[in-house]
Every structure is written in structure tokens, then in C-alpha cells.
């Protein structure tokens, strides 16, 4: 679709008179913004490369290691998945890891959504001194690489006696600047000022307004922010790896890395763990993926 118009345009230039059927089709396609065959082919190829590594992890996870040495390598799932899953659970406390990851991700998601809505409401709809400056500060902190503060953060966790507990993983994730910014933007557009004024006239306190007017109005954005936050929390690796030391406290990602980091790498075992760690996310994605897409796109336009 990119070559057709140029190829036509070059010989056309000297005599612009008869418009070829091909060129007219290209023009109409552009007017209607319809893609050509090449566009679809490219997109299908991209989809293939997006999905294939995930598919291949299922292939490896459902076979035993000897099958991986075959030539040509296996490209279809085998029958060993259940046996491999059992081996994962006996090799590392993967059930504990799953529970830990769910605990951490749910706690962080609930907290981020709540505090972001609260702060977003204040920034979007309440008037107070230095509001603009503080909002700029929020946006600026989105760019701060807080991961580089791990050493003092670790020392702080020692002081609090939180090392090797889930608190240490949850605490740094309780709020984030993106959430506040995202909610501010959303509430600014979605929440009519008259609604708040009316509630005030009725004698509602600010918190009551927040609870009964703002929270329901924020629900669509809360879903988007919740999905994005859950994914980020579930996939976090660097900090949990540092602060968690006993296998029964590991999150899924850390447990997975210990599977992969053994001296003898058992590929089908490791990839079975990967499939298990990714499956819950794929379920979330299948259900709520379109919210994620709208979240990323909204964040982009405004950010």
C-alpha cells in the first residue's frame, strides 16, 4: 500500500490527464483510510512474532527435556505438561509464591487506586494553595528512577525489620505518580463541577462527596489504573529479589528466577514455571485487555 501511490505518481507527473483506475482506488482507499493487503500481511506477521514466544513456552513446558534436542525441534505441544507442573511445585514452593504474588498485587492495586483517586480528586476539583506547583511535582516524579534508591531502601527495611516480609515489597508500591496524574486527568473531564457544588449545598462534607460522588464517577478510570497497576506489581522483580530471602516468602517472579538460576538448567521445568506465572496475567489480559489499551493510550495523549 505504500509503494502503489509512489510508483504511479512518478510517471504521472508529466501528463496528469487520465487518472488510472489503480490510482483512483488508491485515492479512495486513502480517503476512507482503508488499509491494503500489505498492511494486513505486516500486521499478521507482527501478531505471529508477538504470540510465538509465548506459544513456544507452552510447547517446551509440555514436553520433557529430551524432546528439546530433536531435529527438527518440536513445534507442537506434547503430553508432559501435568508432570512438569507437578515437578515445579515440588522443586520450589510455587503455591506459596502464587499466594504471595496475589497478596502483594492486590494490596498494591487497592492502595494505588484509592490514594490516586483521592489525590486526583483534590487536584482536579478542589481549590488550594500551590495546587499547580504540587501537580507539576507529581508529574516530575514520574521520571525519577526510584529503583536507584534500593540501597537506602534496603537499609530502611532493616530498620523497620521488614526484610524478608511481604510488607517490604508492598510498602514502596503503595502509591505512584502515574496513578495520581492519570486520575487527575480523568476526573477533570469526567466529573462535573456542578455535581460537587450541589452536594456541598446539601451540606455534604468533602469526604462524603469523595465517597459518594467521586468514587462512583471514577470507576471506569479505576478499572484501567487497577489493571495496569496489578500487572506492574505482579511482574516486579528487582526489588523483591533483593529484599526477600527465604523461598516461602518469594513472589512468583523471584521463584521463577531461582528455577532458572540453578546450576543445571532444566528447560522444560523453567518454562513450565514461566507458563504458570504468565497464565493468570493472560487471563486478566483476555478479560480486561481493552481497558489496558485505553489506559495506555489515554496516558499517552495527556502525558
Amino acid at each position: 500500500m505504500t509503494t502503489a501511490p509512489t510508483a504511479e505518481a512518478a510517471p504521472q507527473r508529466p501528463r496528469p490527464a487520465p487518472v488510472s483506475a489503480r490510482k483512483r482506488r488508491a485515492y479512495l482507499r486513502l480517503m476512507r483510510n482503508r488499509p491494503g493487503r500489505l498492511a494486513y500481511l505486516t500486521l499478521v506477521a507482527v501478531l505471529f512474532f508477538s504470540a510465538f514466544p509465548l506459544y513456544y513456552s507452552v510447547v517446551v513446558a509440555s514436553r520433557d527435556n529430551s524432546a528439546l534436542g530433536q531435529i527438527p525441534p518440536p513445534l507442537l505441544p506434547g503430553a508432559n505438561l501435568v508432570a512438569n507442573v507437578e515437578r515445579v511445585f515440588t522443586t520450589v514452593p510455587f503455591d506459596a509464591a502464587l499466594i504471595n504474588s496475589v497478596t502483594v498485587s492486590v494490596a498494591i492495586t487497592a492502595s494505588v487506586v484509592f490514594f490516586s483517586t483521592l489525590a486526583g480528586f483534590a487536584f482536579a476539583k478542589l481549590r488550594f494553595t500551590a495546587a499547580r506547583v504540587l501537580l507539576v511535582a507529581v508529574v516530575a516524579t514520574m521520571m525519577v528512577p526510584v529503583q536507584l534508591g534500593v540501597i537506602p531502601l534496603y537499609m530502611l527495611m532493616i530498620e523497620l525489620e521488614w526484610t524478608d516480609t511481604l510488607w517490604a515489597v508492598i510498602a514502596p508500591g503503595l502509591v505512584n505518580a502515574f496513578g495520581v496524574f492519570f486520575m487527575t486527568q480523568y476526573l477533570r473531564g469526567a466529573l462535573p463541577g456542578e455535581l460537587i457544588e450541589a452536594a456541598r449545598v446539601d451540606g455534604a462534607s468533602t469526604f462524603r462527596i469523595f465517597w459518594q460522588v467521586v468514587m462512583p464517577a471514577a470507576r471506569p478510570a479505576a478499572v484501567v489504573l487497577g489493571v495496569l497497576t496489578f500487572l506492574t506489581a505482579w511482574n516486579d522483580y528487582f526489588w523483591p529479589l533483593i529484599v526477600l530471602s527465604s523461598p516461602e516468602h518469594y513472589t512468583v517472579q523471584v521463584a521463577l528466577s531461582t528455577l532458572a538460576g540453578g546450576y543445571v538448567t532444566d528447560q522444560s521445568l523453567v518454562l513450565t514455571g514461566t507458563v504458570l506465572a504468565t497464565l493468570p496475567l493472560l487471563a486478566v489480559f483476555a478479560l480486561l485487555g481493552k481497558y489496558m489499551i485505553s489506559g495506555i493510550m489515554q496516558g499517552a495523549v495527556k502525558g
Binding site: T141, L148, G149, I151, P152, P172
Partner: peptide, 9 residues
């Protein structure tokens, strides 16, 4: 949990 650790670094 963010700014202080980074600065204290």
C-alpha cells in the same frame, strides 16, 4: 519510600 532513599544514596 521513593525520594528519600534516592537522595540518601
Amino acid at each position: 519510600f521513593g525520594l528519600f532513599p534516592l537522595a540518601f544514596t
